[in-house]
Design a protein around this nucleic acid. Structure first.
Length: 617
DNA sequence: GGGCCAA
DNA sequence: TTGGCCCAACGCCGG
DNA sequence: CCGGCG
């Protein structure tokens, strides 16, 4: 029977026999330990000098000073113990990636011990006070280990699990662990002809959408690897690739099916960086993939193809990521005094809009406008990402207009938004590019910004611009800025890497000029308020390299907590409409009514290059 | 909001 | 330990 | 020439 959507985890195929067979038959003769996701390290104390060695004999003593200290601080000075160095995340789960962030086995960076504290999980002892313990049985060695050392802090004693192998393994896998190590209690250290220990690995499996494939290399037939994705919110996100688990017949038949689905359009919301050449396909085939674990960048580790799932709909393949917990603080602090809006409300607001907002700003460089003391106090802009942000927020370097480059924050998920909200980043701006390709804009924005509260003139400009963009086949969208004006957007992502900022800004200026020529008393490109004489500013400078605009669904720093909200053209042109009428307070009602004006955005029927020609010609 | 640096 | 500083970039103004 | 403002 084909199982339902599985987040179920099983032992690997080989282990099932082991668990049901040997380990069940010899119940009671085996003990189990949690498989630690770290580096195997032998710690040797000699004349009060502790050294740490990897299994292949590399000295890594200086990499884990806190472990060395803990071992120096013991009643015995001469010993040799076996264990695993791990770094735990906030929830106590050992994670290999965190360990790697310490910089491998080189000497530890200063300060890393607080950030990414290492723990040595001891599970065996080889010698004590010069006495070789390897011949005696495992359970006696364990007893000695437990008695001879004082555990705590950076030194832990590996927990022994006793009982039914299948039950223990199921429990560990369900808890998100890596697996178990089974060891024969009567065995000496590395002794015996028969195997006296086994790894029991948890295997995750999930359905994934096939988004593309790579060309085969060498004698390989069909294709090299499948490029995989899963839906998150309304985006298809890259989840890694799988190149093993196929036989030749599968390779050939699948290659044939995929060839028919070939397309030039990358189906991912943003092209995964560093993927190399991929033949994209229309994302409609679903396959099941077995894998070891999720990496923190959301890709499968040790993936294995398990077969097609013709019974599954690609659009229903979702990833519900277990998001990292975001520490929140000061939730009762007032950020919007005029409406007594608290930080807690701000966080809830961003939770609420996250699915729609992420569709617009995930994987794009962000500029933050932060108000730790509320909107009435002075805030500050932040472009560079501080060193201390959690790893579920990433960075992208973009050359700035003035010399040096800037490391912008990039969020990928709800956790990122929550973190920023908790950081009082009330207003979030985006650059007009994807993080993967900062040199090329993916949209053009006309910012209609009235000098006073002259919204009628904003609407007049919006309508003129809309008509022109419609005529050019560019499918304009509109959003309320949440403050005074409107933003008119068009998508130009249909030719990735073709349109540069020079061209998009030139195009934006050109249209803006036409508006100014048409109504020179109403509109102006002039930045200075004085020169502008109360006319409406059509701000096209936002389309320059490294320029930014308030993101869809971002809150604004106005007293009533206005939100920059996608709106329909009907709303935008309604004489009653005001940009601040959509706020942190009423967005929930709007969204639960299913209002999502940009959901079914029309695809442009013309490219920007085509439109530019039409405009000039 | 939170790290850093100078008292 | 505490307290101030910093966290964009530009052009414009007035002092 | 500098600091605050938009």
């Amino acid at each position: 029977m084909i199982a339902k959507k599985q987040r179920v985890m099983l032992a690997t195929a080989g282990d099932e026999g082991l668990v049901d067979g040997l380990l069940a038959r010899e119940a009671g003769q085996w003990l189990f330990e949690v498989k630690q996701d770290g580096y195997r390290v032998v710690a040797a104390g000699e004349d009060g000098q502790v050294r740490l060695w990897t299994r292949n004999g590399i000295d890594c003593t200086s990499a884990y000073p806190e472990v060395v200290r803990a071992l120096n601080d013991q009643p015995y000075q001469d010993f040799e113990i076996d264990g695993e160095v791990v770094v735990r995340d906030a929830s106590g789960q050992a994670r290999f990636e965190l360990l790697q962030q310490r910089g491998g086995i080189a000497a530890a960076r200063a300060g890393v011990e607080e950030e990414l504290a290492a723990t040595y999980v001891a599970f065996d002892i080889l010698s004590l006070d010069g006495v070789d313990l390897t011949p005696i049985t495992l359970d006696r060695r364990r007893g000695l280990l437990g008695d001879a050392f004082e555990f705590g802090g950076a030194l832990e004693l590996s927990e022994l699990l006793e009982g039914d192998a299948a039950e223990l393994l199921a429990k560990e896998c369900a808890a998100g662990g890596e697996g178990l190590i089974a060891k024969r209690t009567s065995s000496g250290y590395r002794a015996g002809r028969s195997r006296n220990w086994y790894k029991l690995k948890c295997l995750r499996r999930d359905d994934m959408v096939i988004a593309g494939y790579t060309e085969p290399k060498g004698s390989r037939v069909g294709f090299g690897a499948l490029v995989l994705g899963m839906n998150e919110g309304r985006r298809l996100v890259y989840t890694g690739r799988v190149g093993t688990g196929f036989d030749d017949a599968t390779l050939k038949s699948l290659a044939k099916r995929l060839a028919k689905l070939r397309t030039d359009v990358c189906p991912f919301a943003s092209v995964p960086p560093g993927l190399g050449a991929v033949n994209w396909v229309t994302p409609e085939l679903v396959c099941e993939v077995g894998f070891g674990e999720w990496s923190s960048s959301g890709k499968v580790r040790h993936p294995r193809y398990l077969g097609l799932r013709p019974d599954k709909e690609a659009t229903e393949v979702r990833r519900e990521r277990q998001l990292p917990e975001v520490k929140l603080s000061n939730l009762d602090k007032i950020y919007y005094p005029a409406i007594e809006g608290t930080k807690g409300e701000v966080v809830s607001y961003y939770d609420l809009v996250a699915p729609l907002m992420l569709a617009e700003i995930a994987d794009r460089p962000l500029v933050l406008e932060r108000f730790p003391n509320g909107v009435k106090a002075k805030g500050f802009y932040q472009k560079n990402t501080p060193d201390h942000v959690p790893d579920y927020i990433s960075r992208v370097r973009v050359d700035s207009n003035s010399g040096d480059s800037i490391s912008y924050s990039v969020v990928h998920d709800e956790a990122g938004l929550r973190y920023l909200a908790n950081q009082a980043a009330l207003v979030m701006h985006v650059l007009l590019s994807d993080a993967a390709d900062p040199a090329h804009p993916i949209e053009i924005i006309w910012d209609l910004d009235p000098t006073g509260d002259d919204f009628a003139r904003v609407q007049q400009a919006a309508l003129l611009l809309k008509d022109r963009l419609d005529d050019l086949g560019l499918a304009p969208r509109v959003k309320s800025t949440g403050s005074k004006g409107l933003h008119i957007h068009i998508d130009i992502s249909d030719q990735p890497g073709v349109v540069g900022y020079d061209m998009s800004r030139a195009f934006a200026s050109r249209l803006a000029w036409e508006l100014v020529e048409e109504a020179p008393n109403d509109f102006s490109l002039e930045f200075s308020k004085k020169e502008r004489q109360g006319k409406l500013l059509i701000d096209v400078l936002r389309n320059g390299h490294a320029s930014h605009a308030a993101a869809a669904y971002s809150l604004r720093a106005v007293p009533e907590a206005g939100a920059a909200a996608p709106i329909s053209w009907e709303e935008a042109l309604d004489p009653e409409f005001r940009p601040r009428q959509l706020t942190m307070r009423n967005m929930a009602e709007r969204l639960s009514a299913g209002i999502d004006p940009w959901a079914d955005r029309a695809a442009p029927t013309s490219t920007i290059t085509g439109a530019a020609e039409k405009l000039l010609g």
